[in-house]
Amino acid sequence: MNDILSRRGFLRSSALSLIPLQAFDVVQSLARGQQGDSLAGRGATGTLRDPSVIGRPRRPTDPKENDREIQAIEQQLACNCGCTLDVFTCRTTDFTCTYSPELHREVLALRDDGKTAREILDTFVAKYGEKALMAPKPQGFNLWGYLLPGVAVGGAAVILAAVLRRREAATTNATAESSPPQVAASPEELERLRHALEEVKD
């Protein structure tokens, strides 16, 4: 019993402390900032109290990392850490991955060698196999990967249209004999239908 009480108390107090503490800390850190250790635009860049909890240390951003062409290349290359992401997305999202920054540097190096986007992709395929591409090249068997769904839907649509047309012809022929449709019914029956229809709300 004692155990449950203390646990409940613990949870309650910790849940209560959660939000105010965060807010307090932010305020405090801003206040500290104004004392001069890291105020925006003034003084030296401060050091962190505990750099170990912030993930892998980063290098400053290279201007090339905002280069649209490099981004486009990296978006076509798969990261090989098992994340299923492309190199660009992985390196800008999964900051624990060590593979994607490495692959990124490889792309940069190849780019510095003056290679075109096509050549860089080819180099990667030669080095890591076809799985280095986010989507296989539409060649050979893999071309079928791209074409089959479209071909299947298109083919099915043609068949469906043909079948429908034939059936339509069949039904219109059948009805043509009896058309124009005549309603043969006694007045009581028609009255009954009218009565029944009144019940249907529209």
Partner: peptide, 15 residues
């Protein structure tokens, strides 16, 4: 594809 061609490929968003 791996069964047919024996090479691993990735099929991602571009596909």
């Amino acid at each position: 594809s791996e069964l047919v061609k024996g090479t691993k490929i990735t099929v991602g968003p571009p596909f």
